[in-house]
Simulated scan of single mutants.
Amino acid sequence: MQPSAARSDAYEVVALASSAGGINGLLTLLGGLDADLPVPVLVVQHLDPRHRTVIAEVLGRRTKLSVKLAEDHEHVRPGHVYLAPPDRHLLVRPGGRLALTDSELVHFVRPSADLLFESVAGAYGSRAIACVLTGTGRDGAMGVDAVKSRGGTVIVQDPATAEFRGMPDAALGTGTVDFVLPLDEIAAVISGLVRTERQ
C-alpha cells in the first residue's frame, strides 16, 4: 500500500509502539537502521514497572543508533532512540521537547502508545511516521488514527509475522494504515521514507 497523498516536506520523527513480543521486534527494527538516521525515534514498549529496566542497554547493543530512556524536557536529536520509562507516559511537544507524565492509564497501560502517537500528530502533523509492532490489546489504534488525520504515515507489522497480533490487528481495523509489512522489511521502508525528501 502507498501513502494516500504526495508529500511536500521531509519527515521529522518516527514513533514506534510494541507490547508482548516487542523486545525482539524492536531489536530487529532498530538493528536495521543506520547511525545517520536523519530523525529521532520515540518508543513506547510496555514494561513491568515493578522491575528496573535494562531495555536501553539491550537495544543499544544491537543498533547503531544511540538508545536511552527519555527524560522530561529533553530535546530530541536525529539518530537517537528515546524510550518511555516504565510507568510513565511519553509525549512530545512542538519543537521536539519530550514530556513524561504519570497521568492515568490508557487502555490499562502506562506508557500508552495512543498518547505518544497523538502527541506526535499534534507536534509534527504530516511529518510524522507511526509504526505499530507486535503486542496484545488495542493500544496504538486511536493514535494511528490521529497521525493519519494530520497527514502522517502509518506502518503496521503484518499480523502474520507478529508474535502477538492484537495491536497490529487493532491498528489495521482503523482503515488508516499506509503500509503492512513483515517485521524484517520495516526498517528499510522507514529509512527510505525519511531520506526521500532530503535528496
Rank of each mutant, 00 (worst) to 15 (best):
L91I: 04
D72G: 07
R93H: 13
R52V: 13
G60R: 05
A84C: 02
R88V: 01
V67N: 08
H51G: 04
K64Y: 07
A84R: 02
P86V: 04
L83S: 01
R77N: 12
K68S: 15
H73T: 13
P94I: 02
R62N: 10
K68N: 05
H75M: 13
G79C: 03
D102V: 15
L90Y: 00
R93Q: 13
G79N: 04
E74L: 05
E74D: 11
A99K: 15
H75A: 14
E74W: 09
L59I: 01
V54T: 11
S66K: 15
T63E: 06
D72W: 09
L90M: 06
V81S: 11
L69V: 11
G79Y: 05
P78R: 12
H73N: 12
L69I: 11
P78F: 11
K64C: 07
Y82F: 15
A70Q: 07
V67S: 10
G79S: 11
L83W: 02
D102L: 10
G96M: 02
K64L: 12
A56M: 04
G79I: 10
P78T: 10
H51D: 01
H75P: 05
V67K: 01
V67Y: 06
L90A: 00
H51Y: 13
I55N: 01
A99D: 09
S66Q: 15
V67W: 05
A99R: 14
R50D: 08
A70C: 11
G79W: 06
E57P: 03
P85T: 02
K64S: 14
A56P: 05
G95V: 02
T53F: 00
D102S: 12
R88W: 14
R52W: 10
E57C: 01
V58R: 06
V92H: 04
E71L: 14
H73F: 12
L83C: 05
L90W: 00
V92M: 09
S66C: 09
D102Y: 07
E74R: 07
T101H: 03
G95Q: 03
A99P: 01
Y82K: 01
T53D: 13
L91P: 03
D102C: 11
R52N: 12
A70R: 04
H75K: 15
K68M: 12
R50W: 00
H75D: 09
V92R: 02
H51I: 09
G96Q: 09
R97H: 07
D87M: 03
P85H: 02
V54R: 11
H73Q: 15
L83F: 04
V58L: 15
D87R: 10
E57G: 02
V81D: 08
A84K: 01
L69N: 14
P94G: 05
H51L: 15
R77V: 15
R88G: 02
P94M: 03
V92Y: 05
A84N: 02
V58A: 08
T63K: 01
A84M: 04
P78Y: 10
A99W: 12
I55F: 07
L100W: 09
P86G: 01
V81E: 08
H51P: 00
E71P: 02
